[in-house]
Amino acid sequence: MPTYLYCIIPAGCDPPAASRRGVDAAPVRALDAAGVSAWVSDTPNASMSPSVARARVHDDVVRDAMARATPVPARFGQVLADDAALAQWIDERRESLVESLARVRGCVEMSVRILLAGHDAAPGQAPRESGSAYLRWVRERQQTRQSVTDQAEFLRRGVARAVEEAGVVREVRWATVAPGARSLEAAHLVPRDLVARHREVVRSAVERDHRMKVMVSGPWAPYTFCAAGS
């Protein structure tokens, strides 16, 4: 039967509770392989369609593992043919998985997002009366967006500097900023015992700039810091 993977945790951690249910209410179990432990469940499906409910359950199981030790979380939808195939996959990547576990040990991920307030404050509808009016409107819109983006980027760097100086992050990962993005995002790998302090530092770093809004969510399992592929 196909095996669905939630996460990898260090060997020796307590297994999931017998009552723990995963995606589609399948019992979650630990599969020990190559010196690590994989949290898995059986699934009759060779693939897994995404839904909000299933995504929540996936994260709930990973979060359950996180209560034991910081796991290397799997992306939703990772299905292998059976336990033997997963064990082989783990064995072939043992070194990188152990490295990832060591990298995130004792940490959680905090998501920091700076909302670009005023990003849409460009002049209203594009004028139709003349070409020059239209070009003027385009220029004003670009200037507004650039100004807001520059301010947000400045603030993002300020937040990164503040958390690093306060010693509340082990690592910071920036998200790529897409053209026209309405927010700037970063993932912070934070020692578990510094989560509350991290929030304080982030908030105090942006208090002075009321044009931007910062939003912090977490703690998450370190999905962003364990994005290694096959």
Binding site: L5, A55, V72, Q78, T224, A227, A228
Partner: peptide, 12 residues
Amino acid sequence: LLNHVLDKGIVI
């Protein structure tokens, strides 16, 4: 949550 679970983490 969707951003993390559907887009990040290890892939097989």
